[in-house]
Design a protein around this nucleic acid. Sequence first.
DNA 1: ACAGGGCCTGTGACCGGTTACAGTGAGCCT
DNA 2: AGGCTCACTGTAACCGGTCACAGGCCCTGT
Lengths: 346, 346
Amino acid sequence: MIPVVPGTPRKRPTIRDVAREAGVSYATVSRVLNGRDWVSPAAVRSVREAIARTGYTANPHARSLATGRSGSIAFLLTEPQHLLFEDPNFSVLLRGAAQALSDRSLTLILMIASTPAERSRAVAYLSGGHVDGVLLVSPHSGDPLLAQLVDAGVPIVACGRVLGYEQTISSVAADDRSGARSAVEHLIAAGCTRIATITGPPDMAGGVDRLQGYQDALTAHGLPLDPSRVEHGDWSRESGAAAMQTLLTRAPALDAVFAASDAMAAGALRVLRAAGRDVPGDVRVVGFDDSGLAATTEPPLTTVRHPLDRVADEMVRLLTDVIAGRTPLSITVPTSLVVRASSPAP
Amino acid sequence: MIPVVPGTPRKRPTIRDVAREAGVSYATVSRVLNGRDWVSPAAVRSVREAIARTGYTANPHARSLATGRSGSIAFLLTEPQHLLFEDPNFSVLLRGAAQALSDRSLTLILMIASTPAERSRAVAYLSGGHVDGVLLVSPHSGDPLLAQLVDAGVPIVACGRVLGYEQTISSVAADDRSGARSAVEHLIAAGCTRIATITGPPDMAGGVDRLQGYQDALTAHGLPLDPSRVEHGDWSRESGAAAMQTLLTRAPALDAVFAASDAMAAGALRVLRAAGRDVPGDVRVVGFDDSGLAATTEPPLTTVRHPLDRVADEMVRLLTDVIAGRTPLSITVPTSLVVRASSPAP
DNA sequence: ACAGGGCCTGTGACCGGTTACAGTGAGCCT
DNA sequence: AGGCTCACTGTAACCGGTCACAGGCCCTGT
């Protein structure tokens, strides 16, 4: 291929080298490379051959400079790291995004912005033109980072609706409300009447919507809404355990728990068993997400399947749309109930 | 800040805008930006102010084009995805690398190259000048991808020694051999004499070295090396379970198992319990890595702590060295035994 | 015969930085 | 006074692409 003089730092061929080699102008080479305009078959062939002979690949920075596009997308994490990395959901989403981006010849830049210093660095980086767009993993509506990015005009797609930014930021969410409703209706169908819930943070759409679905189900079946049966967590196992602790003292008569995440459900399971309640005998438990966790808890969790691979794919699709200038859009992917031993079919 | 005419696409200020604003030449602005050469305090001040006034940030692509550096590093996964994403070790390493890179103002590009198509795309991308270097996560020595990257002159640092490339590719590894040895010596001290091992793939240094450490311990204490007590796995839980199955039929008298990863140890635990062996009563089990898994198995695993956060940090340090032109170097970080219930202290 | 259009190609002006080089003036020494 | 260094600054030439624009050539229609 390229004759390498030993000891000499190997110099990459440029578009002009290829042009000289092919006996055409460098503009023609560029045309062949990008499939633009009309180029004669003969020229195409000789350029192709010259490229093969020289081992030419385009310099990505020069291209980015000229086109104004970088070909990379940031995958932005704003949560304290442990929450995200311990969460199998997160892995699925990351893998899905990497896949979807790679399919479109885009690359994934991973950014972690949990400390204040990291956050301001992230804003500078993201609004500095390094990336074409941002995939936002777990948006809290009040986050100033959001406002700064929106202000800088960076294309964003969030995982989950962003409260207060519905018209500005595209998002992809599970059908949280109806998923939660079907989970709770499953419990009602099994004869439960004193159903508690451990829901997510009130500043995240997922938390709000899943709580709403819980309430929908209760009212639709004439059951009372008892605020002492509602607790908030931060999606983590620990917060689920803590919430369950509180619920047990505040509403000891509960006969079912709907947790807005599998991790919180797992925490709840542990506390219930420690308190001597049999699952599902005394208390039925349903989670949300159908993460890797759900099948391995004891007993395995009945849960609402949240198709995160699908979500990741849609996020990337939407982001390329936003970059192309289309208006923001929020879309929803359907969920489905997965029945396991923690709340078997009635 | 920047006066934005509504409806006009906002144009970012360039270095020449700043120069005009500050009343100096653009070379001076560049000098202030990079802290090069001598610049008068007065000029520095007026440039600083002009930057603040215009909200200028340098165009990264122009900078990369001029300097030949991209400021980004690839984090390359070559294993089938599920192996890596299910593995808590992987998360720790990724988080550590992201942190270490961010501290040096470098960005992390995540590349997954498991299918053949992805692999060739990855090679083209990585040798195409998009990144300054590569962090290689789980190198198999025969992998053609390795040869191609080395051939293209891409700076690489691997996690774990790369067999056959010791002189070419820098690497950071745990002290696998002595870690394994101390684990097995812990079992010997507890009175075990028929110790089996589930080790890693023979084309990975971690597998080879941990097996070597196991053998070191046995010979040092005058115990026989019985090949029927050795099985290979691929680090995963499933492979650990399968290996344990085989060991139980082939060497049913075993009284301890040293597994080269926590995941394999967890698989082994499950099979042992299913076979009616009490752990640690009948069989003691020791793992390797001290991953998140180890503390949550039943019983919790005694294991060798593998400080992956530290490894990630050293990998990044080494990579910057390699990029700067220093010769390849393999370094080792120490391990330590963490004693839990699966093999309590004698 | 010549105007006009469809193909195809080359020139040159960008994109927005970095940096080699030349130069300027002030201060100091001999 | 002349030469020299030192501290600083500006000009211009890159880096390696993209793309608007201006032709050139050949074929067709009148």
